[in-house]
Design a protein around this nucleic acid. Structure first.
Lengths: 189, 189
DNA sequence: CGAAACGGAATGAATATTCATTCCGTTTCA
DNA sequence: TGAAACGGAATGAATATTCATTCCGTTTCG
């Protein structure tokens, strides 16, 4: 028997939402996967929408925390700060199962509340910070930050998704090469 | 009144599926948007799943056709062949509203049938062809093709998404610069 | 101590709601 | 005018949510 049913429910929901999406997942299915009665879910979350927002925010918080550990000093070279972002996100993708997939496929969803959206923006701001600084230093292409973020984030999401499904084998060497590719995409030449 | 209700239905479904996803879209909503009775949809499509597969295949077919017009000769430089892919996809994204968003967000969906999956793979093969040739010529990084495709495709999807929602203004100059970024991501340095 | 009473967490069957699909009266068109 | 196309209300299955009941650990009391 598990210690914390709330966590069991969130874990089950994460897996199912990542796999089939919010609208494709029924509450009783979540209950089954969590090995919990359907009613129990409503002891912890007012409704399905509150559940998905709680999960989203928890995931973003974890991802943000991961990004904020061992941060290179602001004075560190942009190249190093970019590497940090890449490998931290990669680390999170590896550690927390389907979390990145869930985040990526739901970050535009209409059922996310203000707070969820805000937290997601804050996460993007962490990337934006490095990119903006890199542009100022002339190390990164002078394109709109949104475009640069979209490229790097879009590429990473797709890649880690692939690794999760097994379509791409994850080796340390490959990861390092891919990181360099991402950097090459946005650096000035 | 419209000439072709089948097209009206597909167009309405495209917009709604791209916006809210297949599971988040109800058939009566599609009917409203298409200005058609709910029952009429079933005169053209056996059920919702047939509808989404028809739409998916039609979109992939259009995208594939777009990619296959004005194709540079096989002997053309890889750089030129890559440009062709990028700008053709961009052209399609601009021309056909939400089609690329719809394709990207549904290409792994469990309700896609064998034929839909196959057509999507064929589309990816068009990209894979150029990338593989580029690797052989030593112009493109010797990484797994899946990884290279994921980066370029993932970045493009995210970018065109952003342009569609207005988070990024699309200008010819910006597009050319972004194309170069994508190329820089995968070329050897 | 040990048994009885208590409280709140958990359950899952029952209910309310939503949705895909069907049905049939009306309209269109040849 | 008859057949085909259409619309949208009706239907029933699926789904979210509720709620009366069970269960279990803790407290009370003899």
């Amino acid at each position: 028997m598990s210690k914390n049913k709330r966590m069991d429910i969130l874990e089950a929901a994460l897996e199912l939402f990542a796999e089939r999406g919010y609208d494709g997942t029924t509450v009783p299915t979540i209950a089954d996967q969590a090995q919990v009665g359907a009613g129990t879910i409503y002891r912890y979350f007012a409704n399905k929408e509150v559940l998905v927002n709680s999960l989203f925010q928890e995931c973003i918080q974890q991802l943000t925390n991961t990004l904020m550990t061992n941060v290179p000093p602001a004075a560190a070279p942009i190249r190093e700060r970019f590497k940090h972002i890449f490998f931290r996100i990669s680390e999170y993708a590896g550690a927390r199962g389907q979390a990145l997939t869930f985040i990526a496929s739901h970050s535009d969803a209409p059922f996310l509340n203000e707070s969820s959206r805000e937290m997601f923006e804050q996460f993007l701001d962490l990337i934006r910070g490095v990119i903006d600084e890199g542009k100022e230093q002339g190390m990164i292409c002078p394109l709109p930050s949104n475009a640069l973020i979209a490229m790097v984030y879009g590429a990473m999401v797709q890649l880690f998704n692939m690794m999760k499904t097994g379509a791409l084998e994850e080796t340390p060497g490959l990861l390092a090469q891919i990181e360099e590719c991402c950097w090459n995409a946005i650096r000035v030449h």
